[in-house]
Design a binder for these strands. Sequence first.
DNA 1: TTTGAGGTTTTGTACTACATATTAACAAAA
DNA 2: TTTTGTTAATATGTAGTACAAAACCTCAAA
Lengths: 231, 231
Amino acid sequence: MALHDLRKDLAPISSDTMADVVEVKLREYLKRKSFRPGDALPKELELADALGISRNVLREALSRLRMLGMIETKKKRGMILSRPDILGSFERVLDPLIIDNKTLQDIFELRLVLEMGLADLLWIRKTDKDIAELENIARKEVDRDATFRIKNEIAFHGKLYEISGNDTLKRFQIMLMPTFEYVLTLEKKPTRGKVSHMDLVNILKHGTKEDFKVGMQAHLQPHFDRLQRNK
Amino acid sequence: MALHDLRKDLAPISSDTMADVVEVKLREYLKRKSFRPGDALPKELELADALGISRNVLREALSRLRMLGMIETKKKRGMILSRPDILGSFERVLDPLIIDNKTLQDIFELRLVLEMGLADLLWIRKTDKDIAELENIARKEVDRDATFRIKNEIAFHGKLYEISGNDTLKRFQIMLMPTFEYVLTLEKKPTRGKVSHMDLVNILKHGTKEDFKVGMQAHLQPHFDRLQRNK
DNA sequence: TTTGAGGTTTTGTACTACATATTAACAAAA
DNA sequence: TTTTGTTAATATGTAGTACAAAACCTCAAA
């Protein structure tokens, strides 16, 4: 019988290490006991004893939770539960160089989707001050070289997310940006939409939300064209 | 002088553990040497020696990278670099119960933004088969109880993301869903938009992309109203 | 050619020991 | 009485050793 036929019937056994198991158990434990941020956790030896494992393994699992920001430890006070930074761990693995092409493409699209969906939030939160600052950014980019335009492009869209008043969203898009840029470099020719940043500013100032959606779509049209071509 | 005044001038010193440092160093090392997925890494003892640390500390750092999916280890073969699951670590911390309210709200909005920005992708990728399946889901939800409607709500929007053809996006929204639902339960009265799922299906079938954007906006209008109120 | 035995290597786990930082308690000094 | 200094206790951080377990290799035997 061929190997791949066998594989269908007998999947390779999953060999979780103790640290893997303990990590899950600890997370379940924290949840079940409904600890609140700031609450003190049992000490390492107690946990290790309770789980019937060495302090070594326990610490490997704790190290993971500590990386996620779920717990903090002080030398004598012991461990306390804390609020994880939900984007922190995401940031660690979001490196264009280690992500496969399919996922890179997915992230590229994800940013397009975010950009397109931003209008409703903007219209709820935008202020005259915001728009003035955005206009400042847009005004700077005429007649500058490519390097500057890229930096300004980031500044402009970054400011848009800032206006959305959503810190998580803003941080998220900042993290997505390098991947977005990276995918662009894979393409040969530079792409520019028919609607400029300044056009978008003017729509924000005098236009309607629907105008803005149409405008943003036109601004990003070259990217959508590419998706269409690779369909 | 008051304590918080002092804090402004003298920030508490950050005491990174060795594991923290080693984790960063390892990530830099992997990047600098531009390892490719599948490449074998030096063995633990060699790494520990090179870094001048105990195998213990090294393993705590490795444990983190292993959690992120950046490396895999086999008993004798040693460690190999692998592709991290970019959403895996995100999933671990995305629990409504341990996230602060501000971030919960941010995530709620994030999902709204995604939903609103989905139209362009849908129009590039949708097929008749997709729409038929979506219609099936929408048809089922008439005259059912609340529990069923929630499950169906998830199925419907899940299918939408599936049509987008973007696996990362789909997984992402599935992970966001519990948080979204959780925020909804914080609200008193249930909210229903003027545009139903079936309406959206019909727009997908016969309408334009712009119609769909307007429709989706109306569908989610109650949520945006709430944001507006809490402005 | 396949099977089996034995040896080797590398990770996985356990245990011990000690360093270090932090807290608490108490004594001493202003 | 309040502040400062000292000491002891304690939990985490780090190091080191030892061995188990799994995977691989080689070679011999069926």
